[in-house]
Design a protein around this nucleic acid. Structure first.
Length: 278
DNA sequence: AAGCAGCCCAACCGCATGTAA
DNA sequence: TTTACATGCGGTTGGGCTGCT
């Protein structure tokens, strides 16, 4: 079907944002909350298209952004998540509090790719570079999640039952329409999975899942403003738009990383909306 | 100091998806 | 069911910055 342009192309600014534009956008969202991006520019007095405003807010102005260099821990987590999810940057970003999909995508392309190459690993397949891939060109996300072995992450703080993680990651991926399963179920294929995700022998069960990190009874923690429009209620059901809790520092690591909702994490004790560490 | 090449990252673009009328 | 609209996602681009010659 034909689509109209996302916004009126004429009379809109392009390129780098000025401080004044940033401030206008911040002020507007502070008062009215996120949403209605199409009408936002006009309402906020900005000569920008809605998409541009949304992008600027999400990637740069949001107050919960972490900024700064990626830690080694984050590096490894991104690599692991990419091996599971492929180029699903938004899904990966959802597991890295304070990081945006754009930021992770850029970081992947500029740093991690190189890092993996230097380790002799193909960043796309996560296989050794000298290993032929002709027999199985599937991306990691196309692995059959039923055959994935239990593995753990080197960093003890991130150890968890990796097979469960992958099952849920796969399920989520399927839910999102990425249903290109290779149907790998044979022993040979399971062996391939083990090669891909070598088990270190250290297996901790932290009951982590990759479900939507639906923290936030206060969905407006970002702006501190109540929004009651339908767009907001829609977003509440959208796991790509979760808000990090204001009391994030008091919840367990898996919750902070977005692996688990505080309601469901059996490693947390949820009392009066505060959780003790796992 | 000037020119050049490579890197980095903010921003753009086109398409996909969800949803209301 | 169809259509139009709003939003989100991933790939790509381009301009600024930095280091090297």
């Amino acid at each position: 079907m034909g689509r109209s342009p996302c916004c009126e192309k004429a009379h809109t600014n392009k390129g780098a944002w000025t401080k004044d534009e940033d401030q206008r956008l911040i002020d507007y969202i502070r008062i009215h909350g996120e949403g209605c991006w199409r009408s936002l520019p006009k309402a906020a007095g900005l000569l920008r298209c809605g998409k541009s405003c949304r992008l600027r807010w999400i990637n740069y102005l949001r107050p919960d952004l972490k900024r700064g260099n990626f830690t080694e821990e984050e590096d490894e987590l991104i690599i692991k998540l990419h091996s599971l999810l492929g180029n699903k940057w938004s899904l990966i970003a959802a597991r890295l509090p304070g990081r945006t999909d754009n930021e992770i995508k850029n970081y992947w392309n500029t740093h991690i790719k190189r890092k993996l190459f230097s380790r002799g690993i193909d960043p796309q397949t996560h296989r050794p570079l000298d290993q032929p891939t002709a027999t199985n060109t599937n991306t990691p996300t196309e692995l059959d999640f039923r055959s994935v072995p239990v593995v753990s992450i080197a960093n003890p703080s991130l150890d968890f039952k990796f097979n469960e993680f992958q099952v849920k990651a796969k399920a989520e991926s399927l839910e999102e329409g990425n249903s290109s399963s290779s149907g790998m179920t044979t022993d040979e294929e399971q062996k391939q999975c083990k090669d891909k995700f070598p088990c270190t022998g250290q297996e901790l069960n932290l009951e982590l899942s990759i479900g939507a990190p639906s923290f936030g009874r206060n969905n407006n923690s970002t702006t501190g403003v109540s929004t009651s429009n339908s767009a907001e209620s829609k977003r509440r059901s959208d796991n790509r738009n979760f808000q990090f809790p204001q009391h994030a520092s008091s919840i367990c690591l898996c919750c902070q990383l977005g692996f688990q909702t505080s309601e469901n994490c059996r490693n947390c004790q949820n009392t009066n909306e505060f959780n003790r560490y796992c």
